[in-house]
């Protein structure tokens, strides 16, 4: 039923332990997981400090993605990693559309407004993982 599951993650916000739910679901659905991290686009007038902060975030995001990949590999889950630049909700919607994603999920409540993202996702369901339960 679901062939491609997209999961938006934020390095520093999403914990590796929180991913268990996602990996369990991917394992049960036997689908490919696309793990996506999004960073702000490179501005033209960034200060040295801002550039450095951006570089650090990109480093951390890639590191987090590869840590997730390593765990998924141990569980024999098919996985692809993506790091994109742009507005979070717009980027999620673009990836969903471009890569024929059937189910979209996230752990992050910080950068996402559920209503606005759902509107952008059209008919693709959005799943919020909540470590603490409903």
């Amino acid at each position: 039923m679901f062939r491609r599951l997209l999961c938006y993650v934020e390095a520093g916000e999403t914990g590796l332990d929180e991913l268990e739910g996602l990996l369990d679901l991917a394992s049960q659905l036997r689908c490919r997981v696309i793990v996506l991290a999004v960073i702000a686009p490179e501005g033209k007038k960034l200060t040295k400090k801002e550039t450095q902060a951006r570089e650090t975030l990109e480093d951390r995001s890639w590191k987090f993605l590869y840590e997730i990949e390593d765990i998924a590999f141990e569980r024999e889950i098919k996985i692809s990693l993506m790091l994109e630049e742009g507005d979070v909700e717009d980027t999620i919607a673009a990836v969903v559309k471009s890569y024929n994603v059937d189910l979209c999920s996230t752990f992050s409540y910080k950068s996402i407004h559920a209503g606005s993202l759902l509107a952008k996702l059209s008919t693709v369901p959005l799943l919020f993982f909540n470590k603490e339960g409903p």
Binding site: E55, E58, D59, W62, K63, L65, Y66, E67, D70, L81, L83
Partner: peptide
Amino acid sequence: KKSHYIMALARLSKMLR
């Protein structure tokens, strides 16, 4: 050397973007 390995993958991915 898992941490070096993850770091190298991350660094290279970032550079190649």
